[in-house]
Simulated assay, not measured.
Amino acid sequence: MKEFHIAKNDSGQRLNKFLEKAVPRLPGGMMHKYCRLKRIKLNGKRAEPSCCLQEGDVLQLYINDEFFSVPDGAQAFRTIAQPRVSVLYEDENILLADKAPGMVVHTDDRGDTDTLIAHIQAHLYQSGAWDPDDELSFVPALCNRIDRGTGGIVIAAKTAEALRVLNGKIKNRELSKKYLCIVHGHPSPASGRMDGFLRKDEKLGLVTVHKTRVPGAKTAVTLYRTLAVRDGLALVECELITGRTHQIRAHMAAAGHPLLGDGKYGLNELNRKFGEKSQALYSYKLRFDFTTDSGGLAYLNGRAFTVRAVPFVQKYFPGYRIP
């Protein structure tokens, strides 16, 4: 028998959600069965998978020890001696990391455990901001993600409350995100709005842009403005009104201005001329624009954070000062 005492970071969530994280090797069907058989009890009584856990609750699990083993990669942070995290901002609730292009944010299909979240967890563990041995189900987690080849700001939540609040804010579009990119050619007009419908092919991992709605497509809106032009390239700022997969890359390519280095949506012939193999795209500015209750994160409302050094800007537009 194993006993869990529910603390603040684990309260407020459904029992089944808690068990998915605290006992990840326990299959969902078996978890429901064990609840029915009273092999999972809450405060000494039969527990329903849908019940909401409260601080101070005691959960008792009469299940085999094999279910408590840790999945491969879950402890990757413990193997990192020197975390590679460029911290843009950190407080007791959140951490803003400036992700380097080429780093994957989560373990992907390749099984890579050298991830941004692992390095963030290692940083928090080594600094004493997080002790995994004091937690039951919560681990610091990312609230947003960006592609391996894209650099820029990624938000990590250091508490369960911060994770819940920020996930809601992102869903409600109460965060403003701006990107810098370099495109081939000079957009005309120099600034504007791109509307369309984006459809993702899951097998190919490719997004197509449509002018009218097609089955499976989602609305996509991108604002853009040209900041500088040089040698057949343009430095462009994009603001995501919607946040779809590969939105900026697909939108700019559909407009006839693929991103420099983008082998998926661009032209390799043009990219080879510059020797670039990864898209010139950077999430450089984040602003918190809360319009609904933000709980303990109210102090972030109205604050903006900017990455001042973007490698491809310095390379292709030397002397340009990021706004």
Results as ranks from 00 to 15, higher is better:
40 I>F: 01
279 Q>S: 09
126 Q>G: 05
264 K>Y: 02
277 K>F: 04
313 V>G: 05
206 L>Y: 11
320 Y>C: 09
88 L>K: 08
145 R>Q: 12
193 R>H: 13
67 F>K: 10
145 R>H: 11
105 V>M: 03
247 Q>D: 13
69 S>G: 07
318 P>F: 12
235 L>F: 04
104 V>N: 10
317 F>C: 04
98 D>K: 01
145 R>C: 15
202 E>L: 06
222 T>L: 01
254 A>G: 06
163 L>Y: 11
150 T>E: 03
298 A>C: 14
39 R>M: 09
117 I>Q: 02
67 F>A: 04
14 R>P: 13
77 F>G: 00
67 F>H: 15
36 R>Y: 13
173 R>D: 05
115 T>R: 03
24 P>G: 08
47 A>E: 09
241 I>H: 15
122 A>E: 00
83 P>C: 00
301 N>D: 02
231 D>Q: 14
241 I>M: 10
195 D>K: 14
188 S>D: 15
215 P>D: 12
120 I>E: 00
151 G>I: 11
154 V>I: 10
162 A>V: 02
297 L>V: 14
196 G>R: 04
96 L>G: 03
323 P>K: 13
111 G>C: 14
291 T>Q: 11
62 Y>L: 03
273 K>W: 06
66 E>R: 12
228 A>G: 09
202 E>H: 01
40 I>K: 09
219 T>G: 12
214 V>N: 04
164 R>C: 02
235 L>P: 12
256 G>I: 13
243 G>I: 07
252 M>I: 09
153 I>L: 13
110 R>E: 15
47 A>S: 05
95 L>I: 09
71 P>T: 14
83 P>D: 00
76 A>Y: 06
295 G>C: 11
259 L>S: 12
292 T>V: 12
262 D>W: 11
111 G>P: 12
285 K>M: 14
274 F>S: 15
136 L>W: 12
252 M>A: 06
249 R>M: 10
269 E>D: 12
151 G>W: 11
274 F>I: 09
143 C>E: 14
237 E>Q: 11
170 I>V: 08
284 Y>W: 09
241 I>Q: 15
38 K>P: 00
127 S>H: 00
205 G>H: 07
203 K>W: 02
274 F>V: 13
236 V>Q: 03
230 R>G: 03
114 D>L: 01
198 L>R: 04
312 F>L: 08
64 N>G: 08
154 V>L: 02
213 R>I: 10
116 L>F: 00
303 R>Q: 13
136 L>F: 15
119 H>L: 00
160 A>W: 10
106 H>M: 01
127 S>K: 00
226 T>A: 01
13 Q>M: 15
107 T>H: 02
112 D>H: 01
292 T>Y: 09
140 P>T: 00
126 Q>R: 15
290 F>V: 13
320 Y>D: 05
87 V>Y: 00
17 K>A: 08
31 M>Y: 02
290 F>S: 10
